[in-house]
Design a protein around this nucleic acid. Sequence first.
RNA 1: CGGGGAGUAGCGCAGUUGGAAGCGCACUUGAUUUGGGAUCAAGGGGUCAGGAGUUCAAGUCUCCUCUCCCCGACCA
Length: 581
Amino acid sequence: MYLQKLFGQRLKDDPKDAEIVSHKLLVRAGYLRQNATGIYSYLPLLQRVLLKISEIVREEMDAIDGQEILMPLAQPKEMWEKTGRYQTIAQELLRFKDRWDKEMVLAMTHEEAVSYLAKSELISYRQLPCMVYQIQLKFRDEPRCRGGIIRVREFTMKDGYSFHRDEKCLDNYYKKVYRAYERIFHRVGLKKVLVVQADPGMMGGRISHEFMLDTPNGEDTIVYCPECDYKANKEVATAQIDGHPEDLKELCKVETPDKKTIADVAAYLKVPEYKTVKAVFYADDKNNVYLVLIRGDRGVNETRLRKLIGSGFLRFAEEDEIKRFGAVPGYASSRGLKTGIKIFVDRTVLSSNNLVAGANEQGYHYINFNWQRDHGLEELSDVRIEDFAEVEENDRCPMCGEKLKVTRGIEIGNIFQLGDKYTRAYDVRVLDEAGKTFYPVMGCYGIGIGRLAGSVVEESHDDNGIIWPISISPFEVEIIALNQKNKDVLSEATKIYNQLKEDGFDILLDDREESAGVKFADADLIGIPIQIIVSEKLIAEKKFEIKLRSNNNRVLIDSKEIRTQVATLVEREYLKYKVEE
RNA sequence: CGGGGAGUAGCGCAGUUGGAAGCGCACUUGAUUUGGGAUCAAGGGGUCAGGAGUUCAAGUCUCCUCUCCCCGACCA
C-alpha cells in the first residue's frame, strides 16, 4: 500500500470528543471515524487490524474444534419471546418493524438463534460435544457509550456456543476455552490480562468468568487478592469485612431533627459513619418490598442482592410502599415495623456494636443499637442474614483472609456456563444411548474484536502514537522514503517495497512529498512495528536504516542484506507473541 | 432518564455592543527546502446544527427541535 493513496487522513489535533488515549490515537492516526453515538466506521488501517485479530481468534477456535457459522443480525421478536428475553431485557435490545409491520429486533447476542439451529441440527448424543461460533455484528442500544471504540452500540464480536451431554463435559470444555482465550490474548499482544469471577447477568447460568485488561481507564472494578488466586468483578466480590465490636451499651432514643441521610446523622451525633445502620427499601418485579439493613459506611452490592432475592429486577421502593409497613423514610430501621416485609441484613450490621439506627419516628434515631438484642421484631422468619456489602480495598480476602486490592479493567472477553436454560426454552431434545431424550447444557463464549483492538492501543502506545504488536499490526513494515525530489530515493524505496512484498510481507510505503519530520511523526503515530528508512545519504553508502517502533532502536543494514534482515526481524517480532506449546 | 458542557470550512478554534464570516492546521498550484511536525507566494473550500420569531439588519437576542461530549443511573 502506498500511503499517498491510503483512505483515511491523519490529524494533528486530538479530536475534541475523545477522552481516552486509544480513542484519540485511533482517530488521529486515521483508523476510526464516528457516525453517531457509539457507532463508528472503520477505515482501512483499523479494518486490517480487525481482520488480523479475527484470524487469530478463528485459528484458536478451530483448534478447539469450533465450527464457524454465521447467524442473522435481524431477527423476529418471537425468537426472543421464547426465552423471555424480549420482556426481561429492557432497552438495550433494539426493536423495529419491517415493511409488513412485523416486529423485529437487532440481535445483541445469539443464544436464541443458535438454539433455534440446535433444535433442527442436534439429534443424537453422538454429535456432542460440539461448538459453533461466528464473528459477526452485534447491536446493543447502550444507555451510555464511552471510550471511543471501547464501549459502543454496534460492534463485531466473536461469539461461540457449545453443547454438551452434561455439566461435567461442559466444565471440561469450558476450561479448554479458557486456555484458548489466554492464547488469543497473548497472541494479540495484551500483557496485563486478569481473569475474574463474574456475574452471568442477563445471560443466565451459574458460572462465568471475564477476561479483563488491567488499566486505569477500565470501566469495571476488579477486586483481587495479592496473596492467593482470588479475583472477582466487584459486582460479585465478597469479603470478610472487619467489624467494630465493643461492650454493649444501653439502647437510647435521641432527637435528630431533619437529619435523614447517614452523613447528616453521623455528623450531627458526632460518630463515624461505620457506627450507623443504613436502611434501604427495595421492591422487586412482583412488588414485594424489602428492607435492607447495612452498615452506614457501606454500599449495597445490588448485583448480589438481586441474586439473593432471586429477582432479575430491583428498584428502590416508593414512599407509600415503605410507609405501608410502618417505616418512616429517613428514620427507618427494623424496630417497630409491621410484619410482612422481607428483611435482608448485611453481616456488617452484626459485627459492630452500639450503632445509630432509625427509630421509625419522625426526627428520632436510636443510639447503641445492637441487632441481636434490638432488632425489635417479634419473629425472625422473614429475616435473612447475608453478605451483600460492596467490597472495598483492604477488606479481607474470602479465601485466605489477606487484604484485598482493587483495580480497574476493560472486559475483553467472557465465558459462561449456561446450563439448559436455552435448550429447554427451545425444546432442544437429544437422544442418549438408551434412546431417552435429554436437554443438552450450553456454554457461551464472547470476545469483542473491536474492543480488543482498542484495548491493545490502550496498553501499547507512547507520546508519539500507537505501538502495534506485529501480530495484529495493519502492516508489518513501513518504508519511509525521504526526499521525493531525488528520483533515486523513490526508485530505491519502490524496489525494496516490491521485493519485500514478493517475500510475503505487508508493507506500507510512505511515498508522499513531505518533509522528513512529517513522515517520521506519521509513522510513529500509525505505529507499524518495523520502519525502513531510505534516504539520499543512505543510498550513497549502500545502506538502509531500520527502526523498531517499540524501543526506537536503529540499525544500519547493508543494501544486499536487507531482505534477509527484514525476514529475521519480522520473525523475531512474531516470536514475542507466539504461544508456548 | 437526571446533572453539566458543546455545535461556526475536512480538523482544532476565535468571533466584542446586533452592522460585509475569520484564524491555525489540512487541501490545490508554483518556487525554495528535505534525518524529526519547513518557508514564501497565489488559490479552493461556509445551510454559522435545524426551524420559527424580534429587528432596517441576527453567528450574536428569544422560543422550539436535533445532534455530540462528560458525570451519574444502567450495562455483556
